[in-house]
Write a protein that binds this DNA or RNA. Structure first.
Lengths: 339, 339
DNA sequence: TTGAAAGCGTTACCAC
DNA sequence: GTGGTAACGCTTTCAA
């Protein structure tokens, strides 16, 4: 574990010169620079990041806050962030903030306060006002992925438009009785992306004169609950819808499985469209709006790096693309419905 | 951003006393301790971790190496680790090491060398000998989850026994033509847990005098590939097996979906058993051996903490439990097979 | 029980 | 171009 002093001695220069040669800041002759580098190499010199941090005030770390890492979207984003970070020689400190957990509170109180990061990326975070307040008073650059939008730098798809297009696709196929499946109930106070998607659906329906058919069936945003809720309402006595817009692919897939279980053919009896293009979407021939959380993670790192380099620059809002991928879970409604 | 000097001044003591009072090391009178604490509180004092690290040599961070975070097992483990870490006031530095990626190499070379962690947890890592070498020469405490076993502290289920029991369950139901689905091919050089599971299956079959039926069908360890490969061999012309032992639940679920698609009834025509008790297992009524990656993560943190506290202590090997959860994807073989 | 001062390993300012 | 030296913010002897 040799330090910069050892390197300097071996290269026959002072610590300051060695530092300059190694970090590339300030004037050093090419000859000395080479000597210092050689010395560092043969010594296997690795700078102590603590010392560097203490001296520079930079941590070379960025913090990532994520509700949990087990849902597809979050996992992909984290992997994307990781990749971008490694390429830039930055460390990734992961903080999970499961909604409602004691640890979340602790994380906000203790961890954030330590400021062991040069910048923060929050993914899918739906902060309470108290939490939001905490985050902003930290005073570190911040980029938000796929969640709230408070004038900070942010990247996400346009949730409203994605759901709008998904719904319009169904309408164009001839459907009228279209249901929106998934997300928190309308009156819930923390519904961010979900709520915008419901909004897009609602608007598409209304604009097409189908306001009477508008129906939002809330459920947890995961496959098992999508399945369970779909089983329930598909077997209900009311007029079964001919199409479903799901809040995301996981819920869509849950619905497809539910339908199959009940002998309801997809897409012949029921069309289903999702949002995401989940890894499993192809397997279920799911028509969906593709987004790439991985790339969103990379983009966020890019924005954050810029913010760290120029702290006073204005926040940027990046709209990630969502492109329609038509597979075979959507089709025109069955004949009777057309009458 | 007040420092310990400010606290000391406000409490009317020296920096050293303030430090002792706050860290709880060394003698301080109760009265002064209280005064220092009050001062720290009103000032909102947060120690600079860099300075602390520099002075103590401890980083208060533990590193977690994981291939990626998008598979169920890994995601759950990481969440478990996170939870345990937060409770101990430790930071989590995440390193992804996707097999074969350029970043993996970079991570091993650069990141590990920085030693910005007091200990390391590797999850499902299947290290090359070069990588293994690198990890051990780091000289930091190490705990391994669900992967190789090199005399270091480790936690995982007994893969061999889990597959053995899964297979025996099928045999007890009356099956003979039982296939093992998933994992790397036998001759692959990096097959760790998978290979042990194949071994358990093979042993159970042999012991039951069913050696002639032994058949390992490799596939990637995820649902889409389990599905694809199952579609293939279930529709093949050869005698279809009456039961499948899947390397994990994701593959098992893929197989179930494949079977359904082909009109093969589960469990009437085909029994399927998995290992994991994946979040989706219940939804597919999957019989499986339950393990809790979350708890394994927590256990690993516990082992690691002990190792960090007493660096010379001997490594511990923890076998996580795997308990059979019988749902309805397994049943006796169809009549013809019994003859 | 307390305080002064010496590190910990860098960077950065300021002379030379 | 280069070297001396003072930070950076804390912990930890060692005296008192």
């Amino acid at each position: 574990m040799s330090g910069i002093a050892d390197v300097a001695r071996r290269a026959g220069v002072s610590k300051s010169t060695a530092s300059r040669a190694l970090t590339g800041s300030g004037y050093v002759s090419d000859a000395t620079r080479q000597r210092v580098r050689d010395a560092a190499n043969t010594l296997g010199y690795v700078p102590s990041t603590h010392a560097v941090s203490l001296a520079t005030g930079k941590t070379q770390t960025i913090g990532v806050i994520v509700p949990h890492v087990t849902r597809w979207y979050f996992g992909e984003v984290v992997d994307g962030i990781q990749n971008a970070l490694i390429a830039r020689d930055l460390d990734c400190a992961l903080f999970s903030a499961e909604p409602g957990s004691a640890n979340r509170q602790r994380m906000f109180d203790t961890y954030l306060g330590r400021r062991r990061f040069d910048g923060l990326i929050t993914v899918g975070l739906e902060p309470s006002t108290r939490e939001l307040d905490r985050i902003t008073t930290i005073g570190k650059p911040l980029v938000t992925i796929g969640s709230y939008d408070a004038g900070t730098s942010a990247v996400s798809i346009d949730d409203f438009e994605a759901a709008l297009r998904a719904t319009q696709h169904l309408i164009a196929l001839g459907h009228s009785n279209i249901v929106f499946l998934g997300g928190a109930p309308e009156d819930s106070d923390h519904s961010f992306g979900d709520a915008r998607r419901v909004g897009g659906y609602r608007t598409a329906m209304t604009e097409a004169g189908l306001a009477e058919f508008v129906q939002h069936i809330p459920c947890d945003v995961d496959m098992p609950d999508g399945y369970a809720v779909a089983v329930d309402f598909l077997s209900g006595s009311h007029a079964r819808p001919t199409a479903i817009v799901a809040v995301c692919d996981e819920v869509a897939i849950g619905a497809i499985i539910a339908a199959r279980r009940q002998g309801i053919g997809v897409p012949n009896d029921l069309s289903v469209i999702g949002i995401d293009d989940h890894t499993h979407a192809e397997m279920f021939s799911l028509t969906t709006l593709r987004q790439s959380p991985r790339e969103q993670g990379e983009t966020a790192v890019e924005l954050l790096s810029r913010l760290i380099a120029k702290p006073r620059s204005t926040p940027e809002r990046v709209w990630a693309p969502a492109t329609m991928v038509i597979r075979s879970s959507t089709a025109p409604p069955p004949e009777p419905a057309r009458l």
